[in-house]
């Protein structure tokens, strides 16, 4: 039975990975082969043409790559730190209007982004005038909304909720403060959840296109995702190689993060 299920699982995973294999092998095809309409997965001849032109003619590729790395890492860092505190408060502390605020947190991220786009734009403009810092056409315009989205707060709150209250109550009776409880008890249990947040935030922001298009003017500041779209529209011949390079950081993150995802501290062990 177990073996049968494992085979089923392997087949499922093959279905999922097939289009990616297709992308990968396409990146070794020559221009002509890609442009010919039929689907085939094995290149007629192994060809590094695409990678070669990305590296030489499109040297900017790595510049955009660094932009993306910078944006995502700052956003992840900020979101995790802010999210941990807020999530803990929402899950385990009692304060005025807690549920109301939380509902607002959910509501605001459920709106399609075009709705808040213009008001958001005007808010940035206000901030710019009030405190004299430039927001438009700087990475701040992408980073701030990325850090303060309620996504991380909601995620972590749901995970913290699963921690039985008795653990916290016992610690409180021992005289521990909230901060101490958060760092000594909740965080170790929360490790898988935090890694989840890191991976998902990375994915969401690595693939972010629309906001970057709207808020950034200088081409040199754009993230890789926008540049890849440019390749898609204007230089499809080298698109697949670009896409493979684009996926690599996520792949590394998955390989490295996957084991932390599964190695959480068991709640039962704390009792």
């Amino acid at each position: 039975m177990k073996k049968l299920l494992l085979v089923v699982l392997l087949i499922i995973s093959l279905l999922y990975v097939y289009p990616i294999i297709f992308t990968f092998t396409s990146s070794f095809m020559s221009y002509e082969e890609i442009m010919s309409g039929n689907i085939h997965i094995i290149p007629e001849e192994f060809n590094l043409q695409q990678y070669y032109s990305i590296i030489t003619f499109k040297g900017e590729y790595f510049h955009y790559f660094l932009n993306s790395i910078k944006l995502t890492s700052i956003i992840i860092f900020g979101q995790v730190i802010i999210g941990i505190f807020a999530a803990f408060a929402f899950a385990k502390m009692d304060f005025v209007a807690r549920n109301l605020i939380f509902i607002l947190y959910i509501l605001a991220i459920l709106l399609p982004f075009q709705v808040t786009l213009v008001p958001n734009y005007l808010v940035f403009d206000k901030i710019q005038r009030l405190i004299n810092i430039k927001i438009f056409d700087t990475h701040t315009a992408i980073i701030l909304p990325g850090i303060f989205t309620s996504f991380g707060v909601i995620l972590l709150r749901q995970f913290i909720r699963n921690i039985p209250n008795e653990i916290i109550e016992t610690a409180m009776l021992d005289g521990a403060s909230y901060t101490k409880i958060l760092f000594k008890i909740v965080l170790p249990i929360l490790r898988p959840a935090i890694f989840t947040l890191i991976i998902l935030t990375f994915i969401d922001n690595w693939n972010l296109v629309e906001q970057a298009i709207i808020f950034l003017d200088s081409p040199s500041k754009l993230p890789l995702s926008v540049f890849l779209e440019n390749i898609y529209y204007n230089d499809f011949k080298v698109f697949y190689a670009g896409a493979v390079l684009y996926i690599i950081p996520s792949l590394i993150l998955f390989i490295k993060g996957e084991k932390y995802l599964m190695e959480g501290l068991n709640i039962g062990g704390l009792k």
């Binding site: 505190f85 502390m93 005025v96 947190y105 808010v123 989205t149």
Partner: peptide, 30 residues
Amino acid sequence: FESKKYKGLLFILPSLIGFGILYVIPFFGG
């Protein structure tokens, strides 16, 4: 936890400020 009713607000404050400015105001602005 009741004695510390406002403590929680302190914890969510950084998030609340940013979220309020960047998400709630635009939400109502829309």
